[in-house]
Nucleic acid binder design. Structure first.
Lengths: 113, 113
DNA sequence: TCTCATGTTCGACGACTGTCGACTATCGAC
DNA sequence: GTCGATAGTCGACAGTCGTCGAACATGAGA
């Protein structure tokens, strides 16, 4: 879905993932909640399946930040935008970072419907 | 030094160091440069010994952010404020985070005079 | 075709952040 | 006591960030 004329979901290549951006992305509690909820799920999860404490447009913003930082992989399936954590890429580039962040980011758990 | 009536240099206890704050602190290139320059030096280093690309008040701000996040230990010695990375505390609380950040944060190296 | 569900984009807003210059505080040396 | 070095504080400013509501775009079904 998304707007017709939106660029086709830009994701950074693995080697272009920037630590500063990843850390900035993960330093927001809402975004850490998203990643935490999505981690370990092997299929893509649509945005609407997460019970986030913010509005739709704000959630959209957070998903974009995570995608552009290289944390999430997004792909369109019909009217749904599926989300998946890029664990392999992140583990390859910053070994241990994701585990560290998730281990310490369980304060505001996000439910997956 | 500092102002006479400033609170006596608040540092978070090891167990109170918050990952979000640490990551936010380390996601700024100037601050990452500071930590990178200070890491591995066993003695305290005064603020003025670092050649930072920002003004005095801005540097002061960055040092405070790092201290309040739990990344730096600051202590006054006469007219100097000595700085040291809290490596033991950080390694204990978030094993590997500092090494990860420093390994990937050498873009804007900061000189120690 | 019409409608609904999903999700984006676009201003707008307040809060926070990074930056600066000017001023102040403290200490040590003269 | 005075002066210089070191360093913090205090506004001020522009830019970014997180948030929202309203409008728009797309695809799936009825």
């Amino acid at each position: 879905m998304a707007s017709r004329n939106s660029a086709p979901l830009t994701h950074p290549d693995q080697q272009d993932i920037d630590l500063s951006r990843v850390m900035a992305a993960l330093s927001d509690p809402v975004r850490l909640g998203i990643v935490s909820a999505l981690d370990g799920i092997d299929r893509g999860v649509p945005c609407c399946s997460l019970e986030l404490p913010v509005g739709k447009s704000t959630a959209s913003h957070h998903f974009r930040v995570l995608r552009e930082a290289g944390v999430l992989l997004q792909s369109d399936e019909g009217t749904r935008r599926m989300n998946q954590v890029r664990r392999a890429d992140l583990d390859a580039r910053f070994p241990g970072l994701l585990d560290l962040a998730l281990a310490h980011g369980r304060e505001a758990p996000v439910q997956v419907r």
